[in-house]
């Protein structure tokens, strides 16, 4: 049997070890950063956003997928549920954004000894995460405020504030709590931590399959493109078209639209209840699947 081929085919338990490790450590760090008070200068918040170096280091040293998922779940469990701050749907967005960003960062590195690669990966990871968060935040205001373009100055200020927060987080948290610690930790832990889990260290003779290497890069480019497209459209006057269309839509269908959206949500809730009742009666295994689909 070729050991090289086996390398990244981890057993279920090895995946679980990476997962647990990442979950408990990043979770702990998250709880600590939540408890540490932040320094505010008006809208400029100099806070320790997160200790991104922990999942980054683990994603670089181990299998990025399990380390990334573990870290995101750890954040939700330790940083939100345990502190009584679990936010429901908001957590789904955080989970996806953070796992994706960390996974991409980890996948970018194929030689943990290469400082340049590690550094680029660390900053990229934070940037992707912050970019997604920013888009979601802008999107929230966009959805939440009726006829956004009709309110003078609001659209610009949202973009400016979120954009500033983005730069602040990437430059402050990104450099101090992602780039520098990751560059410090990865070489120290490389070759030392893996045997403790019964794994062999990653090395540059083994690469991910082409698909695995391409996929993350492709995603980064896609995310950047999508983001810039979004930003330009939003800022440029021609971009208002979208909003106008949106407003038109509301104008044309008026109240009816609200009732429809409300109705859809109601129907979803109703279906879920029905499914649950059926579940209760039949106790069939399949039902969970459909429930899951409905909810997601």
């Amino acid at each position: 049997m070729s050991q090289l081929k086996e390398r990244y085919v981890l057993t279920q338990s090895q995946k679980m070890m990476v997962f647990i490790l990442s979950m408990s450590l990043y979770g702990l760090s998250n709880m600590i950063t939540e408890l540490v008070p932040s320094v505010n200068f008006g809208p400029i918040e100099l806070s320790v956003e997160y200790f991104a170096f922990i999942p980054l280091t683990l994603c670089i040293l181990f299998h990025p997928l399990y380390a990334a998922i573990g870290a995101s779940l750890g954040e939700i469990i330790f940083g939100e549920i345990m502190l009584g701050q679990f936010g429901g749907f908001g957590e789904i967005e955080k989970f996806i954004a953070f796992s994706l960003a960390m996974f991409i960062a980890g996948s970018l590195v194929n030689d943990p000894k290469n400082k340049k690669q590690v550094g680029i990966a660390a900053i990229t990871g934070v940037a992707i995460h912050q970019m997604i968060s920013m888009m979601v935040d802008i999107g929230k205001v966009w959805i939440g405020v009726e006829e956004l373009e009709a309110v003078p100055g609001l659209a610009e200020s949202v973009v400016i504030i979120e954009g500033f927060a983005f730069l602040n987080d990437v430059l402050f948290s990104g450099i101090l709590f992602a780039l520098i610690p990751t560059l410090y930790l990865v070489p120290r832990l490389y070759g030392k931590i893996e045997p403790l889990l019964g794994l062999k260290p990653r090395d540059n003779t083994v690469k991910f399959s082409i698909g695995e290497v391409l996929a993350p890069r492709f995603i980064i480019i896609a995310v950047i493109l999508a983001f810039s497209a979004f930003l330009f459209e939003f800022l440029a006057e021609s971009g208002i078209n979208i909003l106008e269309w949106d407003a038109d839509f509301v104008d044309r269908y008026g109240e009816w639209f609200i009732w429809v959206s409300l109705g859809i949500a109601g129907v979803i809730a109703l279906i879920t209840i029905l499914l649950m009742l059926r579940n209760k009666k039949n106790n069939r295994l399949m039902d969970n699947q459909s429930e899951k689909k409905v909810l997601s």
Binding site: G42, P43, V141, V151, P152, G153, L154, E156, S157, V158, I160, I161
Partner: peptide, 12 residues
């Protein structure tokens, strides 16, 4: 913050 920032951009 949104309120203050929007006034800079001609909001009222």
């Amino acid at each position: 913050y949104l309120l203050i920032a929007s006034w800079f951009f001609g909001g009222d």
